[in-house]
Design a protein around this nucleic acid. Sequence first.
DNA 1: TTTAGTGTATTAGTTTAATAGTACACCGCA
DNA 2: TGCGGTGTACTATTAAACTAATACACTAAA
Lengths: 115, 115
Amino acid sequence: MQFKDHKPIFLQIAELICDEILGGKYPEGERLPSVREYAAEVEVNVNTVVRSFEWLSQKDIIYNKRGMGYYTSLGAKETVRESLREAFFQETLPEFVGQMQKLGITVEEVEQAMK
Amino acid sequence: MQFKDHKPIFLQIAELICDEILGGKYPEGERLPSVREYAAEVEVNVNTVVRSFEWLSQKDIIYNKRGMGYYTSLGAKETVRESLREAFFQETLPEFVGQMQKLGITVEEVEQAMK
DNA sequence: TTTAGTGTATTAGTTTAATAGTACACCGCA
DNA sequence: TGCGGTGTACTATTAAACTAATACACTAAA
């Protein structure tokens, strides 16, 4: 897997899993691949995936069953969706608008480029 | 100065200088503060500012006069502007649109939030 | 009970960014 | 010439992220 260099890999993996949950790959209560499997899949060290899973656990997106593995929490999809929507409107959008103003880019230019 | 933790400080400083050039603070051919001055201003180590200045030199945005200091290049403002516009249309905008689609956010919602 | 697959814990080493302090060559100017 | 301000080079240290390898307790299933 390709990672961007400016952001910790374990966070990029956590976000990837969020995207997969959002895309329906792991329905609520579904078991995720083990840390060793996932590490092999994205070609990364096991410890890095452990950090990603712990990060997601802390956000109540997944949880652990001792000796069995990690499972998606109830309402995980909605949790992820809400979390990302909030980040979009509170951070991404203002940043986006700020850049537009700074560079003198009009709404029309954006609409034109979006096609 | 406040720095974000996920991005190298020397890059954030370089971008800050780009913004200042864009804002007209350092016209073409104008001398920048010395590395020591700038380091004191943003409360950072001298070596970090050195890296920022070297990074900007490599992009032909500023240049060095031996024993005298750094100066903005001819066309620096336009160089910065073009560079940022390209990044906007090639990276920021596609990423923005991708997030909208992923989260099911409509153009109307964005327009509403922008007010 | 044994076995294989879980997560977890620990230790060690590498890399990159940043800090800190020092020394040096260059330049303008008094 | 000599002084003070430039950038530059160098070494050392710290912290975070990542890699690597190992050991261990837990669980389900044979």
